[in-house]
Design a protein around this nucleic acid. Structure first.
Lengths: 167, 167
DNA sequence: TTCCGTTCGTTGCTCATGCAACCAATAACA
DNA sequence: TGTTATTGGTTGCATGAGCAACGAACGGAA
């Protein structure tokens, strides 16, 4: 049929509507929330996002190696390495050699690091809460489930591998 | 694994559990999907994410200005500017001055640009579909609603201002 | 007209990030 | 024992993004 050869104003046929495209919408949402959080991390405490993740992880587990910082390869080795270096230089993190395997090092928060952790964490949580406050508890639970499902699937689709840690 | 004697002490009191923290999970998910898509954009067509967004937007609307590329300030002016320059240099986008307002320019896909659009779009959509395939239609609808609610809220919490595009 | 405030878009600078190459230590195996 | 393959972690390099400062063009007001 006449597939509209006329060059008129409306586009021939939009194959993708960006505002409805899931990956785009996820990116926008994630970007906005990052932006909201980065304001706290960066402006108030001088932490980058990787640094924040390291701090939180160490706050959770007390003692881990650099490799454990990116459980699913979310952060790059180099990203973690640099974040840890910076934190060590600021005296927020200390390293201790692991004598059982001298390739790796144990990481832990210093008292100063823990102090920052205890200062940032509640504020970050508050942002998370404020975000979720527009959802009912039931919706929150649903969201959590959906994110998990999608993340699992996304991990299958993404190249993201070639780097040690597989599921 | 090093079955070492190293004590993996539970931390005093974990204030934040990263794996349960919504912004973190959103970031991970968005990162994974971006990664999956970037593989198509980049490896197969040499497009960056901003470039892809420009192409898709022009594929949708035929003719827009650079400012319209970031409707909600998702991309920075400079990001759009550079993406457009690169695309123009590759002959995928053409500019025409807007005689009514010579500050801005009309942008449109060239035939070559449209060809790439028509090649990439279906593949990108396919990735989106494959992602969503783990959700039931009902879940997909729910997800869409939740994302919208969260995005609206996140936009209130994020600084994201001082830049042209208002609310 | 001229002056001022605003908006569209570009560009220089800086820094964060990803990749890949690399070192050191361990593991696997002949 | 030596020899090779893997793994934890660092670093050089190049690319990418944000910020801010800038130039150009418009709108409004005298």
């Amino acid at each position: 049929m006449a597939s509209g050869s006329a060059a008129r104003k409306p586009a021939p046929e939009p194959l993708v509507v960006l505002e409805e495209f899931l990956p785009y919408r996820l990116n926008v949402l994630a970007g906005l929330t990052s932006s909201a959080l980065a304001q706290i991390y960066a402006e108030r405490f001088g932490l980058s996002i990787p640094a924040w993740r390291v701090i939180v992880t160490l706050g959770q587990y007390e003692c881990r190696t650099a490799r454990d910082m990116a459980p699913d390869g979310v952060m790059h080795k180099s990203t973690v390495s640099r974040a840890v270096s910076a934190l060590e230089k600021r005296g927020l993190v200390k390293r201790r050699p692991n004598l059982d395997d001298r390739r790796e090092e144990w990481l832990a928060l210093t008292p100063e690091g823990r102090a920052i952790y205890e200062a940032v964490a509640p504020e970050a949580l508050a942002v998370g809460e404020r975000l979720l406050s527009v959802l009912t508890p039931q919706e929150q639970k649903t969201l959590s489930t959906l994110i998990d499902k999608l993340t699992r699937q996304a991990r299958l689709l993404a190249p993201r591998d070639t780097e040690g840690s597989e599921a």
